[in-house]
Amino acid sequence: MTCDDKKPLVHALADGELDVVHAREIEAHIASCANCAESYAEIMSLKQRLATAGLRLQAPAGLAERILQALPPPEAVEEPVRRPVRVRQAWWRAPANAWRLRLQGALAGGAGAFALAACLAFFVMRADTGNEIARSLVDGHLRSLAGQHLFDVQSTDQHTVKPWFAGKLDVTPPVPDLALKGFTLVGGRVDYVEGRAAAVVVYRRRTHVINLFVWPGTDPAPPSIELSGYMLRHWTKDGLTFWAVSDIAGSELGEFAEAYRAAT
């Protein structure tokens, strides 16, 4: 197989479409082929850019109403009283999601939107004591996606990743297999957050990377932060600090945190 033949598979790897056997094969090829490694990094950075530039759109405000009018009215359905009139136009959207979608819509709107985002970021900054760390974690997350340094050890096997840390750091994070929960282990690396060494366990949700930073200590920080479109979840356990960082939806990252904590 030449590199040209492998090209669609490199894309498939980036899209999380390969089974474990093929994923390992292509990952091994990438590790030894500078050309394919470069294409892979380019694909990942393009995907990242497309995911975070606010390119998913929101339907115009009147459209949902017009479609609803064409449907038989919902009045006869149970619990009509509990549905307040003012939210009726968007009652079928989960509230948390609605806000996110609106924000994305606003960002997609272009003019003026950045000011809004900047205000929000500013607000978040003021509100969060963990902001310096959050910024540095998001930077670490972005570095891992943009460059070649997503893994030092690349394996979907928890029994390979966990011992690897033991020889590198004074912290050995739990490395549970969360595949059944929809989070695939892809590897681990050592990273630096505000000057301290951290173990990073890397999982993947569909095509999205979740970096889980772990270091000793239990400094207080908010459990949940959103920064520049990235979600962060923080918790402590057994004297260790955990930070999960990803661009997946906050609810999904919450699921990840739950699954990880339940398994450790």
Binding site: R56, L57, Q58, A59, P60, L63, A64, I67, L68, L71, P72, P74, A76, V77, W92, R93, L101, G105
Partner: peptide, 29 residues
């Protein structure tokens, strides 16, 4: 409106309407 139709329409609303932004996004691109 028959009750069965009503139920179908409610089900349609619950399943399909949350996808409106996605449908619009695809159509727009």
């Amino acid at each position: 409106m028959a009750e069965a139709d009503q139920r179908e329409s409610e089900r349609f609303r619950k399943l399909a309407l949350p996808l409106l932004d996605e449908v619009y996004t695809f159509a727009r691109y």
